[in-house]
Design a binder for these strands. Structure first.
Lengths: 249, 249
DNA sequence: GGTCAATAGATTTTCGAAAATCTGATTGCT
DNA sequence: AGCAATCAGATTTTCGAAAATCTATTGACC
């Protein structure tokens, strides 16, 4: 099994919190593959912790929908499928349409300034440091930009929902080999959304954001078709497991 | 501490799953009060389980937002406040507007039949068996009705979000003493929503559902004002001090 | 050959003790 | 008195062993 991040011990941080963060990023970045069985013994070895903190972290991830738990049969990384990809992206469009509208309506100077700053940092980050892999820094700035875009929405509930869906979408993006498709002009896309938002043009901002998500959806969906071993998981878990094990790890 | 449901052991059910269900209903029905401290020793006694299954259940509830966890300081029942009540109800309106619209657009005969059946069961249930307390059976049928209303929505993600918000709203309702305010004609309200949905009148169904939620909001908000110990954070005057200390600076 | 029960090994789940951390009170110093 | 350091009790957090459960295989029987 591939090695994980160094244990980076933060003062006062409990073990289950560190393990939670590590497993989550390992799932989002597909170091733990969809539908992969999560044996406690293996996780214990990998993250250097006892059963309790690991199970606690997994229970949280189960509530978030990142792993699934079958009673007395343990945990698995959540499966992926074409259907849930479409559900996910459609839900993102609906949720972000709400948060973005409210952010534009509520946003003050502080929001505008933070958004401009986030865009600037994103635009200066190169997307691929390795040609077949997304840059970690870019992903971070990308997330920060989308967070800044809706930060002025005054609903903590809607924002947390958006964040959770964003995580799941990122996993699908990580699964698709991004560089193979013609590279999008990401900077321009994000800039257009931002300009519409700053101009207070709700309709335009929403439709640009919708197209932004749909473009990602199309890319990932196409990539998923080329890897049928992923699109079948939900249907027959038993065979999927075998297929996964056969994959080059 | 008040006694809880009998342990009703279901075959093959793990302990943490049973404890999770019990704690959740105890929170929703306010047998565990908002902001109440949840010491492991007390929970261990109350639910008859060891530390592990209880902590695992609490971690899930923390992810759901039903309890909150402060590192090395343990768990508390999630606090209530006027602000989060409004956020919650507004979010419900937004989410249910989406699920209800999609249910009406997708719904077939099966959906219509199930909805009519759910309404009938609800209409035959008396709301209060005890004058100052909601009937458990009514709550169950009420939830089933609202679930049936949107069951034809084809997005598992949106449905699970709606369910989660419904739980949280129910806790606020349980907190307010329902019988004191003039009793609403609940049956008629639900019937109107259902008829609009069955007639395929999206606009009318959505606005009726919105008003339905807003009426609940007004009732609960008013009740919250009469109990100032709740309106900010605390569960009881005795705990107000505790809560003050726990407030983030 | 095929079906079913028994069994052994692996894995999950649960438990309670031990370690780490927090809280509140007390002590000693300026 | 005011304030910081110290200490004891309470609580959370973590650990690994023990119990419960599942899975795959073997062997008996039809």
């Amino acid at each position: 099994m591939e090695q994980t991040l160094p244990p980076t011990p933060i003062a006062g941080e409990t073990l289950h919190a560190r393990v939670l963060a590590q497993i989550r990023t390992d799932i989002v970045e597909c170091r733990l593959m969809p539908n992969e069985r999560l044996t406690l013994e293996a996780l214990r070895e990998r993250y250097g912790a006892g059963f309790s903190p690991i199970r606690e972290a997994l229970m949280r991830l189960a509530a978030e929908g990142m792993v699934c738990l079958e009673q007395n049969k343990g945990f698995r990384v959540a499966a992926v499928s074409r259907a849930s990809l479409f559900d996910l992206m459609r839900s993102r469009i609906e949720i972000e349409s709400i948060t973005l509208r409210r952010a534009i309506e509520n946003g003050g100077v502080g929001w505008e300034a933070d958004l401009l700053a986030a865009f600037h940092r994103l635009s200066k980050q190169s997307k691929h440091v390795h040609p077949d892999r997304l840059s970690t820094e870019w992903s971070k700035e990308h997330r920060t930009f989308h967070r800044a875009l809706v930060a002025a929405c005054d609903s903590p509930i809607m924002l947390s929902i958006q964040e959770s869906l964003f995580d799941k979408a990122e996993r699908y993006v990580a699964l698709s080999i991004v560089s193979k498709s013609p590279s999008r002009n990401d900077v321009a896309e994000h800039e257009q959304i931002m300009r519409a938002a700053l101009a207070g043009n709700v309709g335009r901002a929403l439709s640009l954001n919708c197209e932004h998500i749909e473009r990602t959806l199309n890319k990932v969906a196409k990539s998923l078709e080329n890897h049928p071993e992923f699109s079948e998981f939900a249907a027959s878990p038993a065979r999927a497991r075998e297929a996964l094990v056969a994959l080059p790890g």
